[in-house]
């Protein structure tokens, strides 16, 4: 599944491995940092239309034959409709499966094929999550303690505190911030604290799930500069967002997500013109941008439309948890 190739940086928008590359895309050690191949996720659920006691179980597919890859040194943005299963993809990469989920496909991380146990083991040890906001922190505990983490010996704990101090100073957080509670952080501080939490364990891959909701574009771009510097040092970032304007400003490549699969994985450069985009949905997205046509016409589904991924009663996570 993973093609071994020791290629130097790609020309912009060069097309191979079934996706276009950006100039920053590198295949260090001859493989993708993260490669997801033919991933399908379905949920077993009861037929909602059947009478209560005689309802049969069936499987509703939410992610269908999805492939995506992240190279070292790049930010890949996953953009797509709300409810199309973007957050579910993040859950799969971190090995967080609902009990009623049926998952098929292959995930390779840093050249190793991963199964569910490996993915769970890599969570926090190679793959880290930057969540949406401080609501993911314990509101009753000072943030420094939470960034340090738990379950370490006293010596390790001291070491981690020192490491946290270093990270805090690197990202412009005063040492006093460690003594604050989550609700006392401003938006910008919260962003950095969450990033430091992810960086504590020296990850190779960061998954950022809608890290900038409600920030205006300039602030959001500033927020993502920290991800940029992480990627420039050889990490990979999977940026999950619905905001295509933002994705185009900071990402190297964009994966267009629709109805539970990636319909196109392309370099940001290709978004300069709709003619460079392969899939009709990517072109529809391009035309729907306010600075372009602001057109609401999806060629496959004339309006009114909505993504069909959750049409059968919703999955256990009810669509994008972010919305």
């Amino acid at each position: 599944m993973v093609e071994i190739q020791n290629t130097p940086p790609h020309a912009d928008a060069e097309f191979h491995h079934h996706h276009a590359h950006a100039t920053t895309s590198r295949h260090e050690h001859g493989h993708h940092l993260l490669q997801v191949s033919h991933l399908s996720v379905g949920f077993r659920m009861y037929d909602i239309d059947a009478p209560f006691l005689s309802a049969e179980q069936r499987t509703v597919n939410v992610i269908d034959d999805l492939s995506i890859s992240v190279h070292e040194g790049e930010i890949v943005a996953v953009v797509g409709a709300s409810g199309s299963g973007k957050t579910l993809l993040a859950d799969c990469i971190m090995g967080l499966f609902e009990p009623n989920a049926e998952v098929r496909g292959e995930i390779w991380f840093d050249g190793e094929p991963m199964d569910a146990m490996d993915l769970a083991a890599a969570r926090g040890h190679g793959i880290s999550l930057v969540p949406q906001g401080v609501s993911h922190l314990n509101p009753l505990m000072r943030v420094g303690r939470q960034v340090d983490g738990f379950g370490y010996s006293r010596a390790e704990q001291t070491e981690r505190t020192a490491r946290r101090d270093k990270l805090f100073s690197r990202y412009g957080l005063a040492p006093e911030v460690a003594q604050l509670y989550p609700h006392e952080l401003s938006g910008g501080m919260a962003r950095r604290v969450l990033l430091c939490t992810a960086l504590m364990d020296d990850p190779k891959l960061i998954i950022a799930d809608e890290p900038t909701p409600g920030l205006d574009l300039d602030l959001a771009v500033a927020a993502l500069d920290d991800f940029r510097s992480f990627a420039d040092e050889g990490g990979g970032v999977l940026l999950i967002t619905h905001d295509i304007e933002l994705a185009l400003r900071v990402a190297d490549r964009v994966a267009v997500f629709k109805d539970g699969t990636v319909v196109e994985e392309t370099a940001v450069a290709n978004f300069a013109s709709p003619d460079l985009l392969e899939h009709p949905f990517s072109r529809a997205l391009w035309h729907a941008l306010p600075e372009h046509g602001f057109s609401a016409n999806d060629q496959d589904h004339p309006i009114p439309i909505q993504s069909t991924a959750f049409e059968q009663g919703g999955s256990s996570d009810g669509g994008d948890a972010t919305c």
Binding site: A81, S82, G214, H242, L285, A296
Partner: peptide
Amino acid sequence: DEVSTMLDALTQAQIWH
């Protein structure tokens, strides 16, 4: 008030139309 912030570009265009 930011009615389309959480939406993708296509849904945003539909809602605004």
